[in-house]
C-alpha cells in the first residue's frame, strides 16, 4: 500500500464517521425539538420549552 492511499484511508477513517455522527445527531435534535407531529409535540412539549426550542 502506498503512502498516498494510506493517508487517504486514515482521512476517511476520521471524517466519514464524524460526518455520519453529526447527521445522526442533528436528526435526533430535529425529531426531539422541531417536528410538529402532535404526538411528538405533546410528548416533548415541556422539554422544548425548557431547552429553548420554538414551540407551538
Amino acid at each position: 500500500m502506498t503512502t498516498k492511499t494510506l493517508n487517504a484511508s486514515v482521512a476517511g477513517s476520521a471524517i466519514l464517521p464524524a460526518l455520519f455522527a453529526v447527521v445522526l445527531g442533528l436528526g435526533i435534535i430535529t425529531l426531539a425539538g422541531h417536528v410538529q407531529a402532535s404526538a411528538l409535540h405533546d410528548a416533548a412539549h415541556d422539554v422544548r420549552h425548557a431547552t429553548g426550542f420554538p414551540c407551538h
Binding site: 453529526v22 445527531g25 416533548a44 422539554v47
Partner: peptide, 30 residues
C-alpha cells in the same frame, strides 16, 4: 407519564447534542 416523557426526551435531545459534539471533538483531536 408527563414527566417520564420529559426525562426520556431530555436524554434523547442531549444525546443528539453529544453526537454532534463528540464528532467535532474527533476532528479537533485529529
Amino acid at each position: 407519564m408527563r414527566d417520564g416523557l420529559s426525562i426520556v426526551f431530555t436524554m434523547l435531545t442531549y444525546t443528539g447534542y453529544a453526537l454532534v459534539m463528540v464528532a467535532l471533538m474527533s476532528l479537533a483531536e485529529r
